[in-house]
Design a protein around this nucleic acid. Structure first.
Lengths: 337, 337
DNA sequence: CTGTTAGCGCTTTCAG
DNA sequence: CTGAAAGCGCTAACAG
């Protein structure tokens, strides 16, 4: 079977290549008659346009990139769902890149975008990221970028976040009102704005309840599960151990649970736990864990919508965009050993 | 700033375009000296190759597509993680497509690949999929395709699965040995091979325990959560209700839980539940749910590895490849109301 | 070891 | 309303 492209279509129809191209793009300057003939032959011959050629020529790839730390976390899984659904509606394709929280990888990935591989980028920065030159460089090339969840403070562009400060305030308050005396906060970064917000809400709640804030109660965790578990254990086997814990990232909750298990501590009898989270089904199944449920799907949709808006409407400015989508405090309280 | 490409590099260095191209590709027929000069200037000027041009010319996109029903499910989230990690190691890029269990979408997506958008495809077919012409057509164009988890029986190509029959046999057996008299199986499809396997293991276990198998105990669920919940409720409020349930798909577990909750049934006292699943952290936190934990990450890695093997080694035949990665029965048994 | 040349398939002025 | 022609940036014969 001979390969079929607009050239072969043109020959078959005794039209010029450009006419066929225009007809397929439904250009206004082509007669209805011709359009019909072209489209009919195209479908008959099962013509599929070569996207590489059109991208090369038109400088538009019809692709967006999603750059995230990991997709293991169900937050990002759902965010991808939201992003992909909007992309499909807009005829765009979605590339996924995982940084595994490494700045170096993040840089390499963004650098590759400079050649126009994608038309826009949705990004959640890695915990390791401090500088922002790689991001700025990319944007300087005219590629729009939207942050979702984790943003860099050094870059002026749209960001979709949750009400991190408010929700961690609410979480802390809830624990205090449930009788907790000593609340620990588990964090993954001291540079991410999102971590700082969550920390700020926590501190503010303590202050408003006339409690002193103790640096030792903030546990900075890493990407190393083993190590995190050890930290949880030493935190909880301390005679002066916390009776409330807020995990600012879903997966840290596992470490807490494991630590409690090995120390024979009961949740929530000995320790009350609140986790920032997004496990739809699973946490629903779990009777012991109060969660701050983040609107991952909505955040994904919003971020994608914004990118496409800026892609369609060239003079649309992303800089001012700040969308805050509220999360939900889901209180659950059965007992678990 | 003037745009920089291999042509501008060539001019700057007084070399020909092809020499520069070859130098950047580390071709053996270029002197070390020249290579060094080229690479140095390239990095100095921050040269980023235009991937659309090279794809067009070389007919290789260095991209693979992952086509899955949804990513909400943590199985696919982890599979993506596995796939992306292998892709990164091999210098490939990953496109994600969601079919939302719709055959029509699946067809449209695969059709677009025919123009060479991607070099290979990893796929888990949608529950709705019956025919396989769209898949065969794609493969006829020389695009390698590997199934993971959900395969089509009508297509001869590599498939990565778990030991579905064995694990559902084990699950059923476990319930029987725990004293269950009447076990229901929740399924999502009666055409997917994976569903059939799981059903077969279930039936076999019943037979081996000299129990009769009752068609009414197999509940076919859909993509509609509301509807599924209703079915669970009518299943469980029946006087002759099952005392054991196997959910062949993670998210059906939610419906079971909700139904039990509204009917005030305790898990596992009134009903023992086993779920095919892959929630790392969350189910770990859940004390009541025995799971068949699927090796999602490994399956993703294996599928990707296979694709790259076939991409590198053109005469590598995928047809015979059948990789079965064992899942794990994780028994948990605390009580939940 | 290096250069010349001919496109990949498509878009897009510019002419009619 | 349609056609001719010039490339997008890169690769890969082929020639030296």
């Amino acid at each position: 079977m001979e390969k079929i492209n607009i050239k072969s279509l043109a020959e078959e129809l005794n039209l010029s290549i450009s006419t066929v191209s225009r007809a397929l793009h439904d250009s206004y300057e082509i007669s209805a008659e011709t359009k019909k003939r072209v489209v009919e032959l195209a479908t008959k011959l099962n013509y599929v346009p070569n996207h590489h050629a059109s991208s090369l020529r038109s400088k538009k790839s019809k692709m967006i990139a999603v750059v995230i730390p990991e997709v293991a976390d169900s937050f990002f899984a759902q965010a991808i769902n939201g992003i992909e659904s909007v992309a499909q509606e807009n005829g765009y394709h979605v590339l996924i890149y995982l940084t595994h929280e490494s700045l170096q990888k993040e840089q390499a990935i963004l650098k590759d975008f400079q050649c126009g591989r994608v038309d826009g980028v949705l990004m959640s920065v890695s915990a390791e990221t401090t500088g922002a030159l790689h991001i700025k460089e990319l944007m300087a090339k005219g590629i729009p970028l939207v942050f979702f969840d984790r943003a860099s403070d050094e870059v002026e562009t749209a960001r979709i976040t949750t009400d991190d400060l408010k929700s961690s305030y609410a979480a802390t308050q809830h624990l205090l009102e449930s009788g907790c005396q000593k609340i620990a906060l588990l964090s993954v970064s001291d540079s991410l704005s999102i971590s700082n917000e969550r920390m700020a809400g926590y501190k503010q709640a303590l202050l408003d309840h006339h409690l002193s804030f103790n640096t030792a109660d903030i546990v900075l965790c890493t990407n190393n599960e083993e190590q995190n578990l050890q930290r949880m254990i030493s935190l909880l086997q301390n005679s002066n151990r916390p009776d409330g814990i807020i995990a600012t990232v879903e997966k840290l909750t596992t470490s807490v649970y494991l630590a409690c298990h090995s120390l024979q501590l009961s949740i929530p009898n000995h320790v009350k736990v609140i986790s920032f989270s997004n496990l739809q089904s699973a946490l629903l199944l779990n009777p012991s864990l109060t969660t701050i449920t983040q609107p991952a799907f909505e955040m994904g949709r919003s971020a994608a919508t914004l990118i496409f808006k800026s892609l369609k409407n060239k003079n649309f400015n992303l800089k001012g965009e700040r969308l805050v989508i509220p999360s939900r405090l889901d209180i659950r309280s059965s007992t678990v050993t």
